[in-house]
Design a protein around this nucleic acid. Structure first.
Lengths: 213, 213
DNA sequence: CTGCAGTGCTGCAAAAATGCACTACTGTAG
DNA sequence: CTACAGTAGTGCATTTTTGCAGCACTGCAG
């Protein structure tokens, strides 16, 4: 039970292997999805490419598509950590805002993430599946908010705030052209949170952001 | 291609049969889920109880659990209709609020709905599955909001508002004790929308609603 | 009454997902 | 070095889900 050491290997050979297998599965899945489309890829295919058994695949991922959306497990941990680190004096909504703002640039810079983003554009039927994958994120975030505010973990306010925050995140990402720079995404995000803080007023008819895309 | 007639039978014998089959499947599923728990019920069981083939089950529902959450397909249609009917002068957030407020009492009064609500309490692992079922609702609602505001159907603001509204709905329902009267639920809902309109401020430490449950 | 089109229901086969029991290897302690 | 505990990976059986193609019934037209 030692604290984690350097960043390269989070722990012995065992952990490393696990990470590798996960990556291999994810990479194979994303690649094949892009090449042939989701329907034409079987779990079998992915497993052969990664050199593991089918059963192992479902040991790592709940569904076939989850392999492609793997990122939000890591995201959840990161967000919780960042949120917990925000000063307690900060109003909750602002804390969530700044948390997402901090996490986003690294996320969108990731080449793999961009690939998955393109995948969602090419195969919209995947979007609903992603949502399920998000429910875990919502729970984690709500818990962190509860922690911050000193409310019970299953209280109403934390769920509300976490849900609203993730809605902002999803909407922003969806409205953002993945080819444009990360700053644009941050601008959209800021605009969304501003709108939320103002109580979601009817947008000005000349507001380019809220009618975008 | 005639318009629909009275409310009892939406069209000939054929339609009626379809509705009956759907009900039978839903009813059987809910009953067995409550009796033995989801894991101990196979699609096979449900089909035998309803007198149809397994293939037919998946003709009506996407997944085993969907049969239990069937209600939100009907809900989506109702909400869109109600929202469209709100006066155009009403601010969007308020319109969504009043829409949900109007739809909720009938919903919670439904005996079947209460059964399903109890199911969610007894088997929390079902909650994430319900979420997937909700993505359809979010789309429909966003479209209706876009209509109201004159924004393009895939614009940012409609998605944001619809997402926030549904988050409120989900959170409220989740925080509401299904044994207590519907007025309580409306009170929670109102409180959530008030909080949202105020920009989700940190709740007062003596606020009983936001720390509830 | 008879025939036709539409479409609901079904069986069948393949793929996705899950529970269970077992093997083998890692990391640790003696 | 050796024994042990923990757990990743596997095979197998079962259930869930999906695509496809044929059968059968409803509603309509002649």
């Amino acid at each position: 039970m030692t604290a984690q050491s350097a960043g390269t290997d989070t722990r012995g050979l065992r952990e490393r292997k696990k990470l590798e297998t996960r990556s291999a599965l994810r990479a194979a899945a994303v690649r094949m999805y892009l090449e042939r489309g989701p329907a034409a890829v079987t779990v079998q295919d992915i497993c052969e490419a990664a050199g593991v058994s089918q059963r192992t695949f479902f040991n790592y991922f709940e569904t076939k598509d989850d392999a492609v959306f793997d990122w939000d497990r890591r995201l959840a941990g990161q967000l919780v950590e960042l949120l917990t680190a925000r000063p307690a004096s900060e109003p909750p909504l602002e804390a969530v805002h700044r948390t997402l703002r901090t996490a986003l640039p690294a996320l969108v810079a990731d080449a793999g993430w961009r690939e998955r983003r393109r995948l969602l554009g090419a195969y919209p039927e995947l979007v609903p599946k992603l949502l399920h994958s998000n429910s875990h994120l919502a729970e984690a975030l709500a818990e962190a908010v509860a922690e911050r505010t000193g409310l019970p973990p299953d209280a109403l306010y934390p769920r509300l705030l976490a849900g609203a925050g993730l809605t902002v995140l999803r909407s922003s990402i969806r409205a953002w052209d993945p080819e444009s720079p990360a700053e644009d995404l941050l601008a959209v995000l800021d605009s969304c949170f501003a709108s939320l803080a103002a109580g979601l007023p009817r947008p000005e008819s000349d507001d380019p952001v809220h009618s975008a895309r």
